[in-house]
Design a protein around this nucleic acid. Structure first.
Lengths: 359, 359
DNA sequence: TTTCCTATTGACAACGCTGTCATCGCATGA
DNA sequence: TCATGCGATGACAGCGTTGTCAATAGGAAA
């Protein structure tokens, strides 16, 4: 306030401003002084520790309010084990997938007073484990969220264990003891979708597999097979193409499927991007969707609603999964060591599927 | 090494492992001891400070290597002004836009040894400025990157200035003195696209505006108008629809445009999502693209390649923009106070545009 | 030779918080 | 009445860095 005539009415607080008009941040000492207690008591209140009288508690809280005090993240992290920082590691799957995860994680983080630090890793990098190690030693994360295909990378997993950093794996391929994960039941979901197509009357159902490095790919394929089996339809290898979750790979697979002498009346692709590619190829083959060919995807990503006809797909609650992962990270391990969290999927029926042509 | 027979040959390092097999992190003291210098000298080497002899420098570096030491982010942030943490603030524009920005920012951060902390804000939130303030006081960010529509939010800008936090705005609507920004020339880009359509022979060109809160929206509209004017085509208000960057809004706008008695032969939408919607509506109206109707988008997002026909669009180097923003944040303000950084756009011609039908 | 500089290095105090342990006051039970 | 226990509080020492300032050595200048 020096050099200025302070004619402002006694403002909400007397947080000092320096000559630049920049707020000086209040520290725990300021709060303590204002509340007439020791800094330790302030710390107690802020961390909801027991053994503080209600009276002091309110007094401290109002001092906090007045000074708009927020504890310094760095100081906290340095002094205690808790760091309030969660890492989200990914290796560039589709934009919408990452964005969805991130959104869910952020929401939960905000509620809990945590922050999210994101990091891209290259799962093909030979120095992957070094990179992970560097990351966690440097920035003392409370825990990290692993997304596919990182969820199943031994290098990453080992590095994290070595460093003693907690982690949660999203949609991993394999279960690992003591490695918490959250996923949907991909097998069941793919089963449901296939069964739905069969229910429409389809018998020749093509399938485009996902990237072999992604755990979900295998599960989805199994689900497809089991539904066929259940309906007494014999499995035909030529109806199964290897895709890689990319639009491009979807096109190639679709070209082959639709060139078959007895072409399928329905194609189930392991994700929406590839399903969208099927749509494009169908147009090229002059096939009407869904009149001549039904197409189903997986993920319920933006793409599925942006193409025409809109895709029948399977919605997985990506945001909820990420939120759950954050919660698992935050909650102390003691609270019932629930290591596998499975969320519900949902079939989303749109215009790209219909009964097969009555030939 | 207590309680174990150390028969390993003198391994890369003697980083202690405790009984859980978890690496104890090396601190600057360990490095100092191993190199036979004081911690301050280690600090000097790590921060590339002058006045350290080459000999000690190498000695320290090899100790760092041996112990795979990485300085603790929190301690650094606490002790110095530099924090190595950059905030990316966004308010949920399209997934691909955010993902692109984030990717670019991450790459540059990694190179510079910085980390990225992401945060979602709600630009409609009346407590927005409080939220920003809380964020920056709490976590001592080196600087933040603002994405539209946050780039133009007075609440955010004021809160940041008040807190003395540096920021860079991505694609803001208005220039503000001393507020660094990075953008493309949206006006010119839209001009180019419109001119391209005119060049194909189109005279009735519909336009779908972007969200009015986004700065780029106005600039793109201006570019459209100026290109028309330049070609001597009179501006027709009924060919201009208000959109909001969403697929839904694109559909509504397209419905209206295509219902016009004299419908346009080309439609230029302010982003790809809306352009994709135009494609869908065109199909509903039984119009062939590009035979009966040309469609152009903006952004070169994934969507533009996933629809059929693929969209002619304008690529803006989103990743590069974010990377540039990071650089601007990191580089000291003294280094030539370059506050506006403008990157190049690029027209991407695909299958959704062609000469108008020869009626 | 002596003096002065400069390049190199180190000791030590922050930074803002939490953990540990000591202290105080008051109610309880013997 | 006095010891005992417990709830409430505070003093103080770190956490792992960087900033400040002092100390030392070796070379140039006088």
């Amino acid at each position: 306030m020096r050099g200025k005539i302070a004619n402002t009415p006694s403002a909400p607080a007397t947080t000092g401003k320096d000559s630049d008009g920049v707020h000086k941040k209040a520290s725990i000492h300021d709060v303590a002084e204002r509340a007439g207690v020791s800094i330790k008591t302030v710390s107690r209140v802020l961390n909801r520790e027991p053994n503080v009288s209600q009276a002091t508690r309110t007094r401290v809280m109002s001092a906090v309010e007045d000074l708009s005090y927020r504890p310094n993240l760095f100081a906290r992290g340095l002094a205690s084990v808790r760091s309030f920082l969660i890492g989200l590691l990914y290796d560039n799957p589709s934009a919408s997938y990452v964005a969805g995860l991130q959104f869910g994680a952020l929401g939960r983080c905000r509620n809990e007073g945590y922050h999210l630090i994101v990091e891209v890793l290259d799962s093909k990098d030979p120095n992957l484990s070094k990179a992970v190690q560097a990351l966690v030693t440097e920035s003392v994360l409370h825990g990290v969220i692993l997304t596919p295909p990182l969820s199943d990378s031994p290098a990453v997993l080992d590095a994290l264990r070595e460093a003693g950093t907690r982690f949660v794996r999203i949609a991993p391929a394999r279960h690992i003891a003591d490695a918490p994960e959250v996923s949907i039941d991909d097998r069941q979901a793919a089963h449901d979708m296939t069964a739905y197509l069969i229910g429409l009357g389809h018998r020749r159902i093509g399938f485009i597999k996902g990237h072999p490095d992604h755990g979900a790919s295998h599960a989805r394929f199994e689900g497809y097979c089991s539904a066929l089996k259940e309906a007494g339809i014999s499995f035909d290898e030529s109806y199964c193409m290897q895709g890689f979750f990319s639009y491009q790979s979807g096109m190639e697979a679709a070209e082959q499927l639709l060139s078959l002498p007895q072409r399928p009346t329905a194609i189930f692709a392991s994700n929406d991007d590839m399903a969208a590619a099927v749509l494009a190829v169908a147009q090229k083959f002059d096939l009407k969707v869904p009149g001549d060919l039904s197409v189903a995807g997986f993920d319920d990503s933006l793409v599925s609603q942006v193409v025409w006809p809109r895709l029948t797909t399977c919605r997985q609650p990506i945001s909820d999964m990420a939120a759950a992962a954050v919660s698992m990270l935050i909650q102390r391990p003691a609270d019932g060591a629930l290591t596998i969290r499975r969320l519900d999927h949902e079939l989303v029926i749109r215009e790209s599927t219909a009964p097969p042509p009555t030939a």
